[in-house]
């Protein structure tokens, strides 16, 4: 029973991190049909920023990570993606691989490929004991931070004018422009949001792993992409649910599979993804009524 509850908490906490990743990927995919694999480096650069400021006052280090990552995201948009904005999705995908490769190798040049250990937010190593279940503070903070962020982004998208414009642009970019929504602005805000989300992921990830290594963000971006596919491309709540689902399924499979099969856990996860693609190519979380109009 304890194991079951503990696993459930693990599942939510891992899924929460994936959900933010997926939201960042899903947002940019919706707006500009860009599968932004460079988001992995947004996270990684955030972690390296925190590593360099490991001895600084934490709120300052966290703020620096957010600023650095948002500036990076905006710069990448301006220099790498704007020139190819109207290209087909395949070109955009290749551009994002190029950016990702460039940034990753830049980190290797600057810091070397060997992982670097550092300690950020050591207080999160504490845990609170509820009956027999021991909940690490980091899990609670992860769940709280991701919920807050998701709620914040959700409110932003629902209540602000820019947010509504972004949602409109995410489902029909051309129509939004025909109605006067400024492409440059929406895309820049999209990258800025993806930057903020990546920075938050990097802070939580840094607190969890205490390790900076150049390729560490890759898996998060990959899962983020898979999650948006599961959730339905361009469907933001779907992407969030997709991220939660992938994280939760990974953890649950790890928990219930017999030892010999656990090695193939990823294969099971991706088999599930393929099944989703075959059976519901429009994504798991898109209602039939909405689908009719597509």
């Amino acid at each position: 029973m304890t194991f079951a509850i503990q696993t459930l908490i693990d599942a939510i906490s891992v899924g929460a991190l994936y959900a933010i990743s997926a939201l960042g990927i899903g947002l940019l995919f919706g707006i500009m049909r860009l599968v932004n694999f460079a988001q992995s480096e947004f996270v990684t650069v955030g972690v390296y920023t925190l590593m360099m400021l490991a001895n600084a006052w934490f709120p300052l280090a966290a703020l620096a990570a957010v600023v650095v990552v948002v500036l990076l995201a905006l710069t990448v948009e301006r220099l790498a993606f704007r020139p190819v904005r109207n290209a087909d999705p395949a070109t955009l995908l290749i551009a994002s691989f190029a950016v990702s490769y460039f940034l990753q190798n830049g980190l290797v040049l600057l810091f070397g490929a060997r992982p670097i250990g550092f300690d950020v937010l050591p207080g999160l190593g504490q845990a609170i004991q509820v009956e027999t279940v021991r909940i690490p503070l980091l899990n609670i903070v992860t769940i709280a931070a991701t919920s807050t962020l998701l709620l914040g982004v959700g409110l932003f998208l629902r209540l602000t004018r820019t947010g509504i414009e972004m949602r409109a642009a995410a489902v029909d970019f051309r129509m939004a422009r025909l109605m006067g929504v400024k492409a440059d602005r929406v895309i820049a805000v999209g990258f800025g949001l993806a930057g903020i989300m990546s920075a938050v992921v990097s802070i939580l990830y840094a607190a969890q792993t205490g390790t900076a290594s150049p390729a560490m963000g890759l898996q998060l971006a990959l899962v983020g992409f898979v999650a948006t596919v599961i959730g339905g491309m361009g469907n933001l709540p779907g992407a969030v649910l997709g991220g939660l689902a992938v994280g939760a399924i990974s953890v649950l499979l790890q928990a219930v599979l017999p030892p010999d099969l656990r090695v193939f856990r990823e294969a099971f996860v991706y088999a599930a993804v393929i099944a989703v693609l075959l059976l519901r190519p429009q994504g798991l979380f898109r209602s039939a009524a909405e689908r009719e109009r597509v």
Binding site: R161, I164, E165, R167, A168, V171, D172, R174, M175, A176, M179, G180, V181, N235, E290, R293, V294
Partner: peptide, 18 residues
């Protein structure tokens, strides 16, 4: 027509209010 999917009627209208 290109009504924005996932947006309410009012939100669709708000997009026009530039």
């Amino acid at each position: 027509r290109h009504i924005f999917e996932g947006l309410t009627v009012e939100e669709n209208l708000l997009i026009g209010l530039n």
